[in-house]
Design a protein around this nucleic acid. Sequence first.
DNA 1: CTTGGTTTTGAACATGTGTTCAGTTAAATC
DNA 2: GATTTAACTGAACACATGTTCAAAACCAAG
Lengths: 195, 195
Amino acid sequence: MARTTGSHSDITGPRVRDAALRLFARHGFAAVSMRQIATEVGVQAGALYNYTPDKQSLLFALMRDHMVELLDAVEALPDVSPLAKLEGFVRFHIAFHHERPDAVFISYMELRNLSPENFEALETLRRRYETVLEDILHSGVAAGLFQVADTRIATWAVIAMLTGVNTWFRAGGRLSLNDVQDQYWEMVRRAVAVG
Amino acid sequence: MARTTGSHSDITGPRVRDAALRLFARHGFAAVSMRQIATEVGVQAGALYNYTPDKQSLLFALMRDHMVELLDAVEALPDVSPLAKLEGFVRFHIAFHHERPDAVFISYMELRNLSPENFEALETLRRRYETVLEDILHSGVAAGLFQVADTRIATWAVIAMLTGVNTWFRAGGRLSLNDVQDQYWEMVRRAVAVG
DNA sequence: CTTGGTTTTGAACATGTGTTCAGTTAAATC
DNA sequence: GATTTAACTGAACACATGTTCAAAACCAAG
């Protein structure tokens, strides 16, 4: 046997990425073999190499694509007052991350499995995302709306707090996503706003 | 060759655990082989099985020991007012986690490599730790000192925020550990305290 | 010095790993 | 219908994996 009926790279390509994303998130990059991914796709392991030069590049592509999506979305947020911007950021972060639990998980957990160059590329993207929030905090401080001792630390604190939602929140439970957004926004607002 | 001169289980045992802790934290459980651990200890792979029945038990022992230490320490905090208790918890969490970056990292990252029973055992310990903070928040709310919509969510939010310190803080930099504790305590206090 | 217990070696086992590639079949193009 | 291109198979490569165990060497006690 060789080429199978109905096979097409436009179909197999996304299926490879989807399977890799799910398996990497569930079991970890190092614990997943190329043969497991291939089985999930319904193909032999060798066929995967039409879609990635090697296993690590597959991981990196997933992480990079996720971060680029994240950046594009956050930079499209409306340009309003610092307080409204902060609220927008909080609600956006929670919602965006909730929709992509696997990609978020991988992007935080598998950094150590990247080559130095790939790691650096991803860190650069992550820093750009953090800077969006830090700029908001900074402009709020300048406008006398926020009271923050160190905008850098506050940035890390807020992002860690918001990202933590993914570890426990599941849709269909006691609280809606909106409830969660409301409560986190309330805590963030009080933590940084004056008076 | 066989038994080596100077070999003793009281020495090799801790060395096995130390090497495993450091390697698991650095490269991940699945990416570290028993032979790598053995090399680090200065022993052949077979000798490790005098100290653990298998690889997974070694991981679990490290995680469980860490959580038990954490629980013992947090339950020894003084019984004072809710506000002072909360401050004590915040400062304790930051300091304790700062001193054990490898154990903290492993205990958060390698949960998925545990068997179901081991996972459940660790989750129970983690819930007990969270309950310490939730009880503090709850008693503060009852005393009219705190204003928190949902103590469960606030617990997760605070712990995620505090644990995040480990991802960026390194001793010897711009800020002392005390500076960091001060700033996080300020943010937590404002996020939950009334007016 | 002998005996009994402790600790480690070194080889082996069965299986799994990422990756390559010649050969084969399906789809697309002319 | 003939030819070219795209997609995949299946086998192979060289090596790594967790774990077991008889044999050997060390240490401690009598």
